[in-house]
Design a protein around this nucleic acid. Structure first.
Length: 791
RNA sequence: GGACGUUUAGCUCAGUUGGUAGAGCACUCGCUUGACGUGCGAGUGGUCAGCGGUUCAAGUCCGUUAACGUCCACCA
């Protein structure tokens, strides 16, 4: 018998129950249709906040819903622990620099740190009652992930889709590694637009630049071929100020007539345009910057200086030599590295790439083959594909990651790929026995590691144990996965890369649906972040204080894809709901002690109404959840439960349930059948959102009677169509009761007070049903007399 | 600069195929109703951002303007 509900003990008990019964285990041999979920392995970054709960909980509810409707749910959980984010976390936590440590020491530290956070994350998800099959857990640094990631690389390289090339690459001088376009951020910074003189035939030609420190890298000047002002200079030589060497003056259509003076200097490399120009016009490379972000030793006057120091010094020199016309202040946007926020540079270096630019059409087409929820999120994918400018640079000059399974011939430099049978392999610790085509038998290992996205983009294959040597491959049953869930910020990375890899390896898209969640903001336009100090209580604190069901109920109050805010008020609503569910269940169950569901009963019209409304709610709920509309589904149930079931039906049927002596045993039994059906199905439906309390009540009152040991195994079942007639009759009864309530309220009298007489206006077709409901109405309204008026 | 999204009650938001504007919170008034006062009942409150169009009929469709948000681009 239900008494008091203590979520702190009950939630733990229910979690243990599910675990003991192994309820969420994926059964590869089950005949049921598979519903497989590719859920994001969170970056083990140490900052766990309400946003994680929000998006992961929404996905979890979808998993639960599918489980409840009979699917064989494949719901794994991964952790993205390799790569730069982990290294940076360890550097920060321990106050060290990764490059100063021996690799094995760093590796140990990273493994230790990730293990700590993986445990913390896992505990949180468990405390929220996630229906994850923890047997399917993976980490992107584990052996299988490394093997699959390396295999992917080798195959792409052999097919010519991955290549190594010495060329300009986006470079972070802070993290000292190459990065990919997808890892770029941007920031508005204050700077100066500097107008400086290049001398042409002894006459000054003014060039405006924001980067005077790159003067020594200038390889030519460009003007627009249509620019009348400068036609006479084309083909001549200009003298680079301060450094006094000559460069040609060339033309290019993309030079703007309005910007600066219309003359632009091309330096190696100020930006993407410089790179394009150098390729197009076959210009030489002049080294100016080092990978550390300092001026190269070969640069006169400013060698060894930082970018900003050199800029200052060169402006001073220009000024001193009378070569600086003017300086304008400006704010402009610079590209930064998303992980550290430092402006990026473009430096030539030898890197591995995956060719994505030549298959843009393929990716755009793939976007159309996937169902996007909400649909407008596809736009972000399309825009990203359209704007791709660089092939995907996948090599990182870092340490804690999946190594490149490749060596280079010491003599001719030709790459030697590891045989798939020895994967995963660390080339630094393994000496290949092979002979290069050139006859050489000595090889130099690649020391870079793979971009962390190169591995996490393989999650569908990692989950499927893609061609794993131990024979556990389930790609046949799993590909394509049913659904991918993720937040919108990583569409350009995780979603895009996963699609690209899947197309390259299988020719198919990786999943059928993609569900894109929104963010939790601290307030309008402000992301939650530790640095801003606007983070609310930590997720574990919130669970401890309010309980998992309470937080989950809050997380379900949303339209898919839209951002939301967090507030205590919202949690209060959730808390109140749980109290209501508890009390309603408690009341209902007091009338079911002697109820046997195998007894055949003919439902009275009003009982039929509530049962039909319950079925209708379930049908609507299924249809909404099929579309990933969690919020609307919850509101649909709320509406039925709180209004129709509690406020109307319970009040209507109460008297009959309490007084079988007066109203008859049969009439009571009909009511019992209705409340049994409704409460059970209310629990089933709310089981998606608040699994703990619903299971607790189910265990107390239903498990034995139903002969099904727990709620997740008591599947939803609703046949047929809505019974419009039965529902319309209920609406008619509600209207009659509502009028009486209104009358009493307007006259400030108690609902318990008698009314002398009431008249029900009804269409003829409901007259008979009303006759059967008369006792209920009389009791509920405390009416002494009921008259009818047929419409 | 381009794209996408948002704009509905004081606040947070629902409004499916065009057919008389909805919920929760807040507010007002009332009710010790044999589960729940964390409740129940009844109310107050909206030119659906502006303008123009299509239609018998527009919150809903089309065009346009504005504000806000986001993504992308610009970065000489």
């Amino acid at each position: 018998m239900l008494d008091k509900y203590d979520f702190r003990t009950a939630e733990k008990e229910m979690q243990k129950l599910w675990e003991d019964k192994d309820v969420y285990r994926f059964d590869p041999d089950s005949p049921n249709k598979i519903y497989s979920i590719d859920t994001p392995p969170p970056t083990v970054s140490g900052s766990l906040h309400i946003g994680h709960i929000f998006s992961y909980t929404q996905a979890e509810m979808v998993a639960r819903f599918r489980k409840f409707t009979g699917y064989n749910v494949f719901y794994p959980f991964g952790f993205d622990d390799n790569g730069l984010p982990t290294e940076r976390l360890v550097e920060k936590e321990e106050g060290i620099k990764a490059k100063d440590l021996p690799r094995d020491v760093l590796y140990e530290k990273c493994m230790k740190t990730t293990a700590k956070y993986v445990e913390e994350f896992t505990n949180l998800w468990k405390s929220l009652g996630f229906s994850v099959d923890w047997n399917l857990r993976y980490e992107t640094i584990n052996e299988r992930s490394r093997r699959i990631s390396q295999k992917s690389f080798i195959r792409l390289a052999k097919e010519g889709k991955a290549y190594v090339k010495e060329s300009p690459v986006l470079w972070c001088t802070e993290c000292q590694t190459s990065i990919a376009q997808a890892e770029l951020d941007s920031a508005d910074i204050k700077s100066t637009f500097n107008y400086i003189y290049f001398m042409v035939d002894g006459e000054p030609l003014t060039v405006a630049t924001t980067r005077p420190e790159l003067l020594y890298g200038v390889v030519c000047l460009f003007v627009n071929p249509e620019d009348e002002r400068y036609k006479k200079y084309v083909g001549k030589k200009a003298v680079v100020p301060v450094f006094n060497y000559e460069v040609p003056i060339l033309t290019d259509e993309i030079v703007s007539l309005e910007k600066g003076t219309g003359v632009v200097m091309c330096a190696t490399y100020g930006d993407q345009t410089d790179v394009e120009w150098c390729e197009k016009h076959n210009l030489p490379y002049r080294k100016v910057l080092t990978p550390e972000g300092r001026l190269d030793e070969s640069v006169p006057y400013v060698a060894g200086m930082s970018v900003y120091g050199a800029r200052k010094e060169l402006l001073r020199l220009l000024e001193e030599q009378g070569l600086l016309e003017k300086v304008e202040e400006l704010v402009h946007t610079v590209q930064t590295h998303e992980r550290c926020g430092k402006p990026i540079e473009i430096l030539p270096s030898r890197q591995w790439y995956i060719d994505i630019l030549s298959h843009r059409d393929l990716f755009a087409e793939a976007g159309n083959k996937i169902n996007w929820y909400p649909t407008f999120m596809k736009n972000r994918y399309d825009v990203w594909v359209e704007n791709l400018k660089w092939d995907w640079c996948i090599s990182r000059q870092r340490y804690f990651g999946v190594p490149f399974p490749v060596w280079y011939c010491k003599k001719c430099g030709k790459p030697l790929f590891a045989d798939e049978s020895i994967l995963p392999v660390n080339p630094l610790e393994y000496t290949p026995e092979a002979t290069c085509e050139c006859g050489c038998t000595e090889f130099v290992p690649e020391s870079s590691v793979l971009d962390t996205w190169a591995t996490s983009s393989m999650t569908p294959q990692i989950n499927a144990h893609w061609e794993e040597p131990d024979g556990t491959d389930i790609s046949e049953t799993l590909a394509p996965m049913t659904m991918r869930t993720q937040a919108h910020e990583i569409i350009r990375t995780w979603a895009f890369y996963t699609i690209a890899k899947s197309l390259y390896h299988t020719g198919e898209v990786p999943w059928r649906d993609i569900m894109v969640c929104g963010f939790v903001l601290a307030k309008k336009g402000e992301k939650i972040s530790k640095s801003k100090g606007n983070a609310v209580k930590s997720p574990p604190q919130l669970v401890e204080e309010f309980g998992a069901d309470c937080i989950r109920y809050w997380a379900a109050n949303t339209k898919l894809g839209t951002d939301t805010y967090f507030s205590d008020d919202e949690l209060k609503i959730a808390k109140r709901f749980l109290t209501k569910l508890w009390n309603a269940s408690k009341f209902t169950l007091t009338h079911l002690n002697d109820y046997d569901k195998t007894d055949a009963v003919e439902l009275l019209p009003i009982d039929k109404w509530i049962v039909e409304r319950c079925k209708q709610t379930m049908r609507r709920c299924i249809s909404l959840l099929n579309e990933y509309e969690i919020g609307s589904a919850r509101h649909e149930i709320d509406d039925f439960f709180w209004k129709d079931f509690c406020d109307y039906y319970v009040e209507i049927s109460k008297e009959r349930l309490y007084q079988p002596d007066i109203h008859g045993v049969e009439a009571r039994r009909s009511g019992q059948a209705a409340i049994y059906y409704c409460l059970l199905n209310i629990l089933k439906m709310y089981g998606v959102f608040v699994p703990h309390m619903t299971e607790y009540i189910y265990q107390d009152a239903f498990a034995a009677k139903e002969g099904v040991d727990c709620l997740p195994r008591n599947l939803w079942s609703v046949d047929g169509e809505d019974d419009e007639e039965a529902i319309a009759f209920g609406e008619c009864v509600k209207a009659a009761i509502s009028e009486v309530r209104k009358f009493k309220s307007e006259n400030n009298i108690s609902m318990k007070a008698d009314v002398e007489s009431m008249t029900i206006v009804t269409p003829e077709k409901f007259k008979a049903a009303f006759d059967q409901t008369l006792g209920d109405i009389v009791a509920c309204c405390h009416a002494k007399e009921v008259k009818f008026e047929i419409q």
